[in-house]
């Protein structure tokens, strides 16, 4: 609203129209076109064919596996992320900046390198490979490897979204609660959490979308066994490489829908938190 009465610094109507037009063109070409291509290719041979591809046993097994992986990784990174956010936002201690930087680290490490690191630890020729083999425990090319690789790539999401908000809240309310005799968990649940709930939910959503859509990291540790260690994104690759384009795009459309739902939910959450209007979620009653 601030911009309304600022004629001296307002661009000419023509310039504004040109910029808006160019921005819409870029977004259409670079963002909307690929998204449209997914659905057009998926429906090229009709909806029944697309639905048939989704109902195949291998696809259903991939969906089940992806749901299991997400159901394990999201809660683990939720708990870890909340602990990290609380610890960094509410306390001062030496090494705090280093800790924050390390929490961000997975964002700047290639997903393939993430997968590789777990192979180096648990693979047949990894650090613990022989030990695991002697005990008949399989991590790489099995569910535990998929979970570990996904945990790595989704590691910072919750911590990153919640931490700045918790820091902004300050510490006065927590201190008051502690003075009144509240325990740590009680303080967190009743004082801190209500103020960050929308950001937390957005973080969980993004974490989940990435967990379900991750490709590079799980590709390295999966072994690509159909019906067993194939997640949904990996299944897209298999179908595509077998020239089953209709099937590949049908499964891809499913993942694209997940992405769209995540985006819509995130936009709604941002509105709920009123972040854009300058009201912080901490003010919400």
């Amino acid at each position: 609203m601030r911009e309304t009465f600022r004629p001296a610094t307002q661009d000419s109507p023509l310039a504004r129209r040109l910029v808006a037009g160019a921005a819409i063109l870029v977004a259409l070409l670079l963002l909307a076109l690929p998204l449209a291509a997914v659905f057009v290719e998926a429906l090229r041979r009709g909806l029944p064919v697309a639905l048939e591809a989704l109902a195949e046993p291998d696809t259903l097994a991939a969906i089940r596996l992806t749901l299991i992986v997400a159901a394990i990784t999201v809660p683990v990174n939720l708990v870890g992320g909340l602990a990290a956010a609380w610890c960094v936002a509410k306390f001062d201690f030496p090494g705090k900046r280093l800790l924050t930087a390390l929490i961000d680290l997975p964002f700047s490490v290639s997903p393939v390198i993430a997968g590789l690191s777990f192979v180096l630890m648990f693979g047949a020729r990894g650090w613990f490979g022989p030990w695991l083999e002697a005990r008949d425990i399989q991590i790489i090319f099995a569910l535990p490897g998929l979970v570990l690789a996904t945990l790595f790539v989704t590691f910072p999401f919750v911590a990153r979204t919640v931490m700045p908000l918790m820091a902004e809240q300050g510490r006065d309310e927590e201190e008051a609660a502690a003075t009144l005799g509240a325990g740590g968990l009680q303080t967190f649940l009743m004082v801190t959490l209500p103020g960050v709930r929308w950001a937390l939910l957005a973080g969980v959503l993004l974490c989940n979308a990435r967990a379900m859509g991750e490709f590079g990291a799980v590709s390295v540790v999966s072994g690509h066994i159909r019906g067993e260690t194939n997640t949904v994104p990996l299944h897209v690759e298999i179908l595509y490489n077998e020239y089953q384009f209709a099937g590949a795009f049908a499964v891809a459309a499913l993942l694209a829908l997940l992405g769209l739902v995540t985006l819509a939910a995130k936009a709604l959450l941002e509105r709920a938190a009123g972040r854009r209007a300058g009201l912080h979620a901490g003010d919400a009653a």
């Binding site: 690929p34 998204l35 997914v38 859509g213 590079g216 997940l258 992405g259 995540t262 819509a264 995130k266």
Partner: peptide
């Protein structure tokens, strides 16, 4: 504004084949 986050939300394999 919402669409600008699409590359964050769209799985990379889907972006790749699209």
């Amino acid at each position: 504004d919402a669409a600008l986050d699409l590359p964050f939300a769209l799985p990379t394999a889907v972006a790749g084949i699209a």
